[in-house]
Simulated assay, not measured.
Amino acid sequence: MLDISVIIPVYNAAEFLEKSVQSALQFEEVKEIILVEDKSIDQSLEICKKLADENSRVLLFQHPDKENHGAAASRNLGIEKATGNFITFLDADDYYLPNRFDAEKTLLNDPKIDGVFSAIGIEYLTEKGKLEFQSKFSDSTLTTVQYPAEGKEVFRGLLGLTPKTFGSFFHLNALTVRKSALEQSNLRFNNILRVHQDSDFIIKLSYHCHLKSGIIDQAVAMRGIHDDNRITKIARYSPQYNQRQHLFWTSLYEWSKPLPLEKDVSRHIYLQKKAFELSEKKGISKMVGILVAALKNSDILRTKYRFTYSHS
């Protein structure tokens, strides 16, 4: 039987936390639920204590200084504290469905497979959150990939380098990975990234580990969309958006430099990093930067996120 540690970073999630924890407790495969409380300013800490007191499988941790360190650092602390052979993640405002580990029960019997990912659904909890989400993302109610894949195909697909469209990033809520695989590759979340640390982690994970798609045509977990979702607050091509994308691609670029990646992969990561680096510049500095970059490599003008003078 699977032996799973569920890691839940907790920050200002008092309204949702109990449902999230109960959704994980329904599975006998779940050995422990690790709550990492990140200095919330609502009643989250009190609820965490209550849940831990009520069930021995619920464990509560805080950062040593009891300060706020963000979701990446909280997940890393959870990984360090986990004692299960397998690790899963769950956001405190989301929840698992009864079929959450159906694919894992079969696929993870194969020692070659380090991790399994599936699809998640979207539940709109507020009208404002719904409008903000739909204005920035597709109206699809399922976050999934377009076709079954495993191994190298997953890594290239997430970077948009497969012959056919691979699709969305799969969500952490639908990922199960062997703890031993994380330890072997010394892989953790990048603490510098306050957003996109999940996408950064997933891409790196898909390179270092053998991942396989599980249930991709129906949800195994639900993502709650509400007024306080951070990712929906950032307008596309705003200075803040460009800055955070620059940090994300710089993280991937620094990670990729010592690795024996295929040339098209290395080029793609560099060009995306360079594009967002230039998108943060303004006026003549931006014009000169684009010209110099284009002279060195004209592919910079065909990056996915084109930067134009109107975005200065």
Rank of each mutant, 00 (worst) to 15 (best):
T83L: 07
Q243F: 12
H210N: 12
D299A: 14
L295P: 00
G121W: 12
E67F: 05
F169I: 06
Y124K: 04
F86R: 10
K128N: 10
Q43Y: 08
A293R: 00
R100Y: 03
A275F: 04
W249F: 13
F189E: 05
S20H: 12
I269H: 01
E46I: 10
T176Q: 06
K50S: 04
R57V: 02
P9C: 06
G157W: 11
N297R: 08
H196Q: 10
I231C: 02
T308L: 12
I7F: 05
I7S: 11
Q134W: 03
D94H: 08
G84P: 05
R236H: 15
S5H: 13
H171A: 14
K49R: 14
N242R: 15
I7T: 02
Y237F: 10
Q184F: 02
I192R: 14
A103M: 12
F27P: 01
R244C: 03
H171W: 08
N186G: 08
I47M: 10
N297V: 01
G151K: 11
G224N: 11
V30G: 07
C209E: 10
D93C: 11
A221L: 06
L159V: 03
T144P: 10
G160M: 10
A294C: 10
V58H: 04
E277Y: 07
P98C: 13
E28I: 08
E54C: 11
H208V: 08
L301G: 08
V10D: 00
I113M: 10
E80D: 15
L77V: 01
L125G: 05
D264Y: 06
E104K: 02
K136W: 00
M287W: 07
E104N: 09
L90A: 09
E54Y: 12
K274I: 08
F137E: 08
D114W: 00
K31S: 09
H311T: 04
L59E: 04
R223P: 00
E54P: 00
D264W: 06
I113N: 04
A92H: 09
S298F: 09
K105R: 14
K130R: 15
Q243L: 12
E277S: 07
L158E: 01
E32Q: 15
L125P: 03
T143Y: 06
E80F: 10
Q62L: 13
H268E: 02
V195A: 04
T83E: 13
K164M: 07
R194E: 08
K136S: 13
T250D: 11
N109M: 12
K257E: 08
L107G: 00
H268D: 07
